[in-house]
Simulated scan of single mutants.
Amino acid sequence: MKKLINSPDTVLADALRGVAAAHPELSVDIENRLVVATEPRENRVAVISGGGTGHEPLHSGFVGPGMLDAACAGEIFTSPTPDQMLAAATRVDAGAGVLFIVKNYTGDVLNFEMAAELAADEGIETASVIVADDVAVEDSTWTAGRRGVGTTVIVEKIAGAAAAEGRTLAEVAAIAERVSKAGRSMGVALTSCTVPAVGHPSFDLPEDEMEVGVGIHGEPGRRRVPLEDARGIAHDIVTAIADDADFTGAPVIALLSGLGATPLIELYVIYADIADALSERGISVARVLVGDYITSLDMAGCSLTLVKADDEILRLWDAPVRTTALRWGL
């Protein structure tokens, strides 16, 4: 294992120290493993997300004006604790309530539920939205029901924009829930990933094979098949998503994310084929992001997310945002 780390035991703490050094505009609480926006939020709904690390820039890279108010960081591929989530809620609550955005993994769901109960005891009103958008499998190793993946990024952006407009907690939760239900994702892995504490690849994937529908923790996908070219992979993932939900008749937000070890040039190669496949199906892409947004350490591959939008969702997507990983309009 070759990694730019000091010790497998200190990766998260060391990374948070790096975030603090690189981004003084953020407040980094290393003890509680939190990244918090410093902008005032008087009488405004606060938006919090979080999960295991190893998926950067999710979630800490999306903290800032127009998106998240705080992110809770668990150890690599491990849920943060309810105490961390409560500490985040206490830090950012401004009297209008707190929205939790939760990826559908068993540990995350249970811990955020417990954090909501603890917050209620502290007089903090909360609401939660669970993202479960992975079309690959149901009831995987890590979760009951579908896994939460790329739609999480879009939910965080839309919820943050709605909160910035001064909407109530119920209103912010409603638009976040609508976006969550409108999103579908599918990923393909060309290699495994290596968790520092483990020291070797999470699974064996021969050079001439790929895992279709892989999870962001290295969970098995739908099937293992011979390696295809970009056009074939694009067809596979577009077909899987489009067969699961109707994305015609309305504009779509598309997010193509690398999984951590995929060069940007390869992402653009496959996005060209994805765009062709979407056009052939009559799916109109109104907004698109290509790059690393939700990753899996050093896994090679990509994940496509589509969210069926409308004028309101597009307007909130276009609203100003200033985070370390996503910014426009500010």
Rank of each mutant, 00 (worst) to 15 (best):
V11K: 12
V11D: 04
D14E: 15
A15D: 02
A15Q: 06
A21M: 05
H23T: 07
H23L: 07
S27E: 14
S27L: 15
D29K: 04
D29A: 09
E31H: 12
N32K: 13
L34N: 07
V35Q: 13
A37F: 02
T38R: 13
E39F: 09
R41C: 03
N43W: 00
N43M: 10
N43T: 06
N43P: 06
R44T: 12
V47D: 00
V47C: 03
G50M: 15
G51Y: 01
T53V: 10
H55K: 06
P57V: 07
P57N: 08
G61W: 01
G64K: 00
G66N: 00
D69M: 01
A71F: 04
C72P: 08
G74A: 08
F77K: 11
P80Q: 10
D83V: 11
G95I: 13
G97H: 08
V98N: 14
I101Y: 00
I101R: 01
I101G: 04
V102S: 01
Y105S: 08
G107T: 09
D108E: 03
D108N: 05
V109Q: 00
V109D: 14
L110F: 14
L110K: 00
F112D: 12
G123D: 13
S128N: 00
V129C: 03
V129Q: 00
D134L: 02
D134W: 01
A136P: 05
A136I: 05
D139Q: 14
S140V: 09
S140E: 07
R146G: 04
G148M: 01
T152I: 11
V155L: 01
E156K: 00
E156F: 00
A161T: 11
A163I: 02
A163S: 08
E165L: 05
A173K: 15
A176N: 01
G183R: 00
S185G: 08
M186V: 14
A189M: 12
A189C: 09
V195R: 09
V198H: 09
G199D: 06
P201W: 04
F203P: 12
F203W: 10
E207T: 14
E211D: 11
I216D: 07
I216Y: 03
H217C: 09
H217P: 06
R222K: 15
L227K: 14
D229R: 13
G232E: 11
I233R: 15
I237E: 12
A240V: 06
I241A: 06
D243F: 00
D244Y: 12
A245K: 08
A245L: 03
P251Y: 03
V252N: 09
I253S: 03
I253N: 03
L255F: 15
L256E: 15
S257I: 06
G260K: 04
A272N: 15
A275R: 13
S279E: 11
S279C: 08
S284I: 03
S284H: 07
V288K: 13
L289Q: 14
V290E: 04
G291A: 06
D292G: 02
I294R: 01
T305H: 04
T305I: 02
K308V: 04
D310V: 02
A319H: 10
V321D: 07
R322T: 12
R322S: 08
T324Q: 12
R327I: 01
W328G: 11
G329C: 04
